[in-house]
Computed example of a mutant assay.
Amino acid sequence: MTGFDAALIDLDGTVVHGGSLLAGAGAGVEALREAGLEVLFLTNNPTRSPAGWADHLSELGLPGDADEVLTSAEATVRYLDAHHAGARALPVAGPAVVEQLETADVTFVEDPTAAEVVVAGYHAGFDDEEMTRGLRALLDGATLVGTNRDRWVPTDAGPIPGSGAVINAVAGAAEVDPEAVLGKPSQETVDLAMDRVGAAPGDCLLVGDRLDTDIAMGERAGATTALVLTGAATGSDLEQTDVRPDYVLESLAEVERVLDGDAVDGA
């Protein structure tokens, strides 16, 4: 029925929208599981832990466990441990994000002049004070690491600025480029995902709603990609990008058509 060993599934805009499960998402995930695929939810939303996401999905009627969720915060922790172990880090991110990063082998500091690395991510309370702290640390020689590049995120009330907006603001003020931005489509996230599902990229199906993160990551890695039109991207966006999904689906509910080989080709 399918040549895939694993499915990497985005969450916001693919499975959930704000606090609700998208129509047909549960059936789509169940179809993948019944087909024998290892399922991994892959999210650039760093505000919930994997356990928090698993609980949230279960509350919405989609049972799972923490091992089935990989977040951009986890990828950021892995990067900090590999490249900045023992460093003094200044967080320019909200409390929920900082909480996810506390397992990293860094010491968080409040003094910008003491920081060796600035870690920026989603921050609902981002303001001039936070901008100034990040700016001063970067001008004093700290490097910049971001949790993920999403410039906006969907909510029940409408789009709000995401991690990428914070990272871009701080980087722009200091006129520096981030040393790394984790989450999708980074190679670090690809490597973590492949380790988690125990499969090669070419044996994976990646399903998501964003061309610049989800589909770009799958395309670069060599996975089969399916764009769903329930979130950020629209059909017209396909005419304005070089990123080409292998399949375009109205929603995750149609993913079984990819498994059966009769979904609409995205080329």
Rank of each mutant, 00 (worst) to 15 (best):
F126G: 01
N148D: 14
V153A: 11
P95T: 06
W152L: 08
A82T: 10
A89L: 02
A51V: 08
R78Y: 10
G158S: 13
H83C: 00
T143Q: 01
T43D: 05
N45A: 11
A142T: 00
L37A: 08
A124P: 12
E129Q: 11
A51H: 10
D128W: 15
D67Q: 14
R149P: 15
D150T: 08
A157N: 13
G64L: 15
Y122P: 07
L70A: 07
A75N: 06
L101Y: 02
G94T: 09
L37P: 04
G141K: 08
A142N: 01
L90P: 10
D150F: 13
A96H: 14
A51Q: 14
G158F: 14
T107Q: 14
A115I: 01
T113F: 15
S58K: 08
N44G: 11
Y122R: 10
M131R: 10
E130A: 15
E68P: 06
G141Q: 10
T147W: 09
V119Y: 00
T147D: 06
L37I: 09
R136Y: 13
E38K: 14
E38P: 06
W152D: 08
A137M: 09
E102Q: 14
H84F: 01
G134A: 05
R88Q: 04
R88N: 03
L70H: 07
T143A: 03
P95Y: 09
R151G: 07
L135Q: 05
A157H: 14
T71G: 06
V77E: 00
A89K: 01
G121M: 13
E116I: 00
L135A: 08
F108R: 02
T132M: 15
Y79W: 09
D65I: 07
V145G: 00
A89M: 02
R133E: 04
P46T: 04
F108D: 02
L144V: 04
L40G: 06
P112K: 10
F41P: 04
A124L: 15
L101A: 02
D67F: 13
E102L: 13
A120S: 11
V118Y: 02
H123V: 02
T47D: 12
A87T: 00
A66H: 08
L101F: 03
E102C: 12
F108S: 02
G86R: 03
E129P: 02
V77Q: 01
D65E: 15
L60E: 06
A104S: 05
V153R: 14
W53L: 05
T113G: 13
D65M: 11
P46V: 05
A115T: 01
P63I: 09
